[in-house]
Lab assay of single mutants.
Amino acid sequence: SIVTKIISIVQERQNMDDGAPVKTRDIADAAGLSIYQVRLYLEQLHDVGVLEKVNAGKGVPGLWRLL
């Protein structure tokens, strides 16, 4: 499923980069989806406690990390 793919992308990127959070844009590119589509999935995963959003604010790139 797309959700499983997104989780594995975040996991893979974090492992490659010493646990650093992953940008929404990088996840979207790797999943082959638009940034808006991916954001909806990321928000859902956040709501159920799978991911945390590391930063927030208007015009700030979203950074995500697995919990």
Rank of each mutant, 00 (worst) to 15 (best):
Lys23Tyr: 05
Arg25Asp: 10
Ile27Val: 08
Ala30Leu: 07
Ala31Glu: 01
Gly49Trp: 03
Gly32His: 07
Ala30Cys: 05
Ile9Ala: 06
Ile9Arg: 01
Gln11Ala: 12
Met16Asp: 07
Tyr41Gln: 02
Gly62Ser: 14
Tyr41Met: 07
Arg13Pro: 02
Gly32Lys: 08
Asp17Met: 15
Gly19Asn: 09
Val22Thr: 05
Ala20Arg: 13
Leu40Val: 13
Leu67Trp: 09
Arg13Leu: 15
Gly62Val: 15
Gly32Asn: 08
Gly59Lys: 06
Ala28Gln: 02
Gln37Ile: 15
Leu51Thr: 01
Ile9Asn: 00
Lys5Met: 13
Thr24Met: 03
Gly57Leu: 05
Ser8Ile: 09
Asp18Thr: 07
Ala56Tyr: 09
Arg13Phe: 14
Gly57Pro: 07
Ile27Cys: 01
Asp29Tyr: 13
Pro21Asp: 03
Gly32Met: 06
Ser1Gly: 11
Thr4Lys: 14
Ala30Ser: 07
Gly59His: 07
Ile9Met: 04
Trp64Glu: 00
Ile2Thr: 06
Asp18Val: 06
Ile9Cys: 06
Val22Arg: 00
Val50Asn: 01
Asn15Trp: 10
Ile6Asp: 00
Val10Ser: 00
Asp26Met: 04
Gly62Cys: 15
Ile9Tyr: 13
Asp26Gly: 01
Tyr36Leu: 10
Leu51Gln: 02
Trp64Ser: 00
Glu12Trp: 13
Leu42Asn: 00
Trp64Met: 00
Asp47Lys: 15
Val60Leu: 12
Pro61His: 14
Leu63Trp: 06
Ile9Gly: 00
Asn15Thr: 11
Arg13Ala: 08
Gln37Met: 13
Gly49His: 05
Asp18Asn: 15
Leu45Ser: 00
Gly59Tyr: 06
Val38Trp: 01
Gly59Arg: 07
Trp64Phe: 01
Leu45Cys: 01
Val48Cys: 14
Tyr41Pro: 00
Ser34Arg: 06
Val3Asp: 02
Val60Thr: 14
Val22Cys: 05
Asp29Trp: 07
Gln11Thr: 09
Gln37Ala: 11
Ile27Thr: 01
Val48Trp: 14
Leu67Tyr: 11
Val38His: 00
Val50Pro: 03
Val60Ile: 10
Gln44His: 15
Lys53Leu: 08
Asp47Met: 12
Asn15His: 10
Thr24Leu: 03
Arg65Ala: 07
Leu63Cys: 08
Thr24Val: 04
Asp29Leu: 12
Glu12Pro: 00
Leu51Pro: 02
Asp47Pro: 01
Val48Asp: 13
Ser34Met: 04
Arg13Thr: 03
Val22Ile: 08
Gln11Ser: 09
Gly57Cys: 07
Gln14Ala: 07
Asp26Ser: 04
Val22Glu: 01
Val10Gly: 00
Gln11His: 10
Ala31Ile: 15
Tyr41His: 05
Ala56Thr: 12
Val10Gln: 00
Val38Glu: 00
Ile7His: 03
Ala31Asn: 01
Ala28Trp: 02
Val22Tyr: 02
Leu40Glu: 09
Glu12Leu: 09
Arg13Ile: 13
Val48Arg: 13
Gly59Leu: 05
Val48Phe: 12
Val60Gly: 15
His46Phe: 10
Leu33Ala: 02
Met16Glu: 13
Ile35Gly: 03
Ala20Tyr: 10
Thr4Met: 13
Leu63Asn: 05
Ser1Phe: 10
Ala30Val: 05
Lys5Leu: 12
Ser8Lys: 15
Val50Met: 07
Ile7Tyr: 06
Ala20Asp: 09
Asn15Met: 13
Ala20Thr: 08
Ile6Glu: 02
Glu43Thr: 06
His46Arg: 15
Ile9Val: 06
Lys23Ser: 15
Asp29Cys: 09
Val54Glu: 02
Glu43Gly: 06
Val22Ser: 05
Gly59Met: 05
Ser34Asn: 08
Arg65Phe: 08
Lys53Trp: 08
Leu42Asp: 00
Gln14Met: 13
Asp26Tyr: 11
Glu43Gln: 11
Met16Ile: 09
Val10Tyr: 01
Ala30Trp: 04
Asp47Thr: 13
Gln11Arg: 14
Lys58Glu: 14
Ser34Glu: 07
Leu66Trp: 08
Leu66Asp: 03
Lys58Ser: 11
Val50Lys: 04
Tyr36Lys: 14
Val60Cys: 11
Leu66Phe: 09
Lys5Glu: 06
Ala28Pro: 00
Val60Ala: 13
Asp29Thr: 12
Tyr41Leu: 12
Asp17Trp: 13
Ala31Thr: 08
Val54Thr: 07
Val22Asn: 01
Leu42Arg: 00
Ala56Asp: 12
Ala28Cys: 03
Gly62Pro: 15
Gly49Lys: 04
Val48Lys: 13
Lys23Leu: 07
Gln14Phe: 05
Lys58Thr: 12
Asp17His: 15
Glu52Thr: 06
Glu43Cys: 09
Glu52His: 05
Gln14Trp: 05
Ala20Ser: 09
Ile35Asp: 06
Glu52Gln: 08
Val38Ser: 03
Lys53Phe: 06
Asn15Cys: 13
Gly59Trp: 04
Gly59Cys: 08
Val48Gly: 08
Ala30Met: 07
Ile35Lys: 04
Val38Asp: 00
His46Ala: 15
Arg25Pro: 04
Arg39Phe: 08
Gly49Glu: 02
Ala28Glu: 03
Asp47His: 14
Gly62Ile: 15
Gly32Phe: 03
Glu43Ser: 05
Lys58Leu: 11
Lys23Glu: 08
Gly57Met: 05
Val50Gln: 05
Ser34Gln: 06
Ile35Tyr: 09
Gly59Pro: 05
Val60Asp: 14
Glu12Phe: 12
Ser1Val: 10
Lys53Val: 04
Gly19His: 06
Ala20Pro: 04
Asp17Glu: 12
Lys58Arg: 09
Leu40Trp: 14
Ser34Ala: 06
Glu43Leu: 07
Ile27Tyr: 08
Arg25His: 08
Asp18Arg: 12
Glu43Ala: 06
Ala56His: 11
Asn15Leu: 11
Gln14Glu: 05
Tyr41Asp: 00
